[in-house]
Amino acid sequence: MEIIQIKKLTKRFPMGKGEFTALKEIDLTFTKGEFAGLIGPSGSGKTTLLNIVGSLDVPTEGEVLVLGKSIGNLNQKDAAQLRKESLGFIFQSYNLLQVHTVYENVEFPLLLLKKSASERRKMVMDALEWVGLTDKEKSKPPQLSGGECQRVAVARAMVKKPSVVLADEPTANLDAKNSHNILKTMLNLNRELNTTFIFATHDEKVISYLRRKIFLLDGQVEKDVIVENPKS
């Protein structure tokens, strides 16, 4: 089942008096449950593509359909609604709310979805169980290690069971051991919940876990490879 369709996507940014083309006529399709990565050096267009799929930016040309919704035609409110209901984000720097507890950080997306207190409680505890942090629900981010923070970020992205999770360099601030732990956690969630994961990365550790590798170079898809025997 195709949940993301990218057709002839071009993205240009104004630069001085001219324009800079970040993405050139990209054609891609993602199906439900994929564990895919956009791989490429800096400036290859990974984050730009992630932005557009995440309804944070709009295409200059072409069409991007996420869960049947054309990103280019969404207004600010509809784009926010799409992100709120169907997309999860994981950032390089965790970006947890420092004064709130682990529980409250994970609960926040559910508050936006106006879930009831009992529903929220169950969903948050489930999410914390997925990432192995049930004993830390009352801790605050400054009391956690980097690996634990990123696991909270994963729980926050996954708690509403989104259709797609977009992760931008999620292991950049982690050591090797924590990177593998977090990637294994995400892989398990991908399998258990059939959530589509799309990474933007150039980290070998992440790449080794991917089931699909999309290599970008100068805003174009250079290679799109399905991995036969991925790391698990």
Binding site: G54, L56, Q76, K77, A80, Q81, L82, R83, K84, E85, L87, F89, F91, N95, L97, F108, P109, L112
Partner: peptide, 14 residues
């Protein structure tokens, strides 16, 4: 700034 950014990314409207 970061908090507002994350809230926007998570789908809260401006």
């Amino acid at each position: 700034y970061g908090e507002v950014g994350i809230r926007l990314a998570m789908g809260e409207t401006k």
